[in-house]
Design a protein around this nucleic acid. Structure first.
Lengths: 252, 252
DNA sequence: CGTAGCCTTGAGATGCATCAAGCATTGTGG
DNA sequence: CCACAATGCTTGATGCATCTCAAGGCTACG
């Protein structure tokens, strides 16, 4: 029942919130973050939005269940997981977030966060005051539309997770997970064939609805079949087509 | 592999789209639909939004995967399921929608729908042109905020489904499902103790990540334990506290 | 009244969880 | 810098929840 999460004061004191000269127009992640699909000329309009950045060290939380919601966070560097801990002690990882991805959308519904966001390595985020976001979106419809797209994309992503959890076998889940990471690393400009798993087997298992032993065994099997090469957290995907083919045949 | 879905021409011809005098202010569902949280005085602003209604007969689809997205739909009466059919023939029910609930948010991300919406009984929806919604939201911030809340709520709901699919046993899933329906019927002003399951066992199973036989057995067991009374689609929840207690103990 | 879809129940198969032991890796303090 | 402790990972043996396959009954609808 214990995870790597190190309990820490959730609200990083103000002195850690660096007030940097932040510019969406100059950010190399801008295709991925909120501005995606907004023309370069217009990007300057968004700069007032990103007033601050915040550094989160590995194991610390960006926000936690019950925290008052007032901002979204765009991952600038690092790696996060979001985790839902229900009253009865059930623990479910609901997602992993990489640079260019957004955190905090869960909080809009009730003005309070409904998941924990935990940094899996030292990370940095852009803090987007949601009230500012809404205000600017009112005058600047591309931003408005992009925000809607991002929220909808999250809904669609979760549909995919539902398919995974609802109808895939262990082997398929792990393959889908690896392929998903691969694609996202590629989007970021990294190799889709080789990357580091920032999360533990237990966290992978929680996300995939499997026990950590099953994740481990499945990875080992993939390795013995020549599909991948695993060495601890380092993974190499040796045969992407074969991995994809694992998802093909329906479970029937 | 066959579901109750009756294939039908997805685009209901225009003559079925009734141009009614529609008024959000007068709608008895307004607490539940998009307007929720918007004061009565302001509701008149929304009327131009709801230009049309549309009737969908049981078994027909409101929209399907790949359809161009341009509208959201508020269920006025009836009952829907949303269903994701992946390329490989996997079929997953992603949700059930009751009056006052919104359909179509999945389509914003890519301008095309990513699920099918199928009426489980004769139904009627309000058609909300999304472009209108965005336009009005720009001038009328309560609507803007409410739209964001609704989208966020959907994200949070799906988190709950992920917990269900990722960590609950069959008994817990079915109990959670019944309790969820119960609460929603109560919200609509119906009895939380007695209602009709509009969907088949197979659809329940797809939603819950179980086979229809398991759903059936679990319902039978609940009945033999005196927790519920099932007669075909008719369900009576005889012991709500006991059902809730089933969700308590973690699976460990 | 007949048929098709839906539901229930049983028996047997299986995939994943559980329990357990030992190894590897990482980080830490002497 | 090394040794140790803590955490994470792997692998094996066993058990069990759920799936699968099968048969029969019920219900609703044309």
């Amino acid at each position: 029942m214990k995870s790597i999460s190190i309990q820490s004061d959730e609200h990083v004191p103000g002195d850690l919130q660096k007030r940097l000269q932040a510019s969406c127009a100059a950010c190399n992640l801008r295709e991925l973050c909120v501005p995606g699909g907004i023309s370069s000329d217009d990007l300057a309009q968004l700069d007032p939005l990103v007033a601050t950045r915040r550094r989160i060290r590995r194991g610390e939380t960006l926000f936690r269940v019950g925290d008052v919601f007032d901002s979204l966070y765009a991952v600038r560097s690092g790696f996060f997981k979001t985790r839902l801990t229900s009253e009865d002690g059930r623990d479910q990882v609901t997602g992993f977030q990489m640079p260019g991805e957004l955190l905090g959308l869960d909080g809009v519904a009730t003005e309070a966060h409904s998941v924990d966001a935990v940094a899996l390595q030292d990370s940095e985020v852009c803090v987007l005051q949601f009230a500012d976001l809404e205000r600017i979106a009112r005058d600047f419809s591309p931003l408005q539309h992009q925000l809607h797209r991002v929220m909808s994309r999250e809904i669609v992503r979760e549909h995919g997770v539902m398919v995974l959890l609802g109808s895939m076998r262990a082997e398929e889940r792990v393959a889908a997970f690896l392929l998903n990471l691969s694609k996202r690393f590629e989007t970021l400009g990294y190799s889709p064939h080789e990357f580091i798993l920032r999360m533990t087997r237990e966290e992978i298992g929680s996300y995939l609805g499997l026990k950590l032993e099953t994740v481990s065994r499945t990875l080992s099997r993939f390795q013995s079949e020549g599909l991948i090469e695993v060495s601890n957290k380092q993974v190499r995907l040796l045969d992407l087509p074969a991995l994809k083919k694992l998802l093909g045949p329906a479970p029937v």
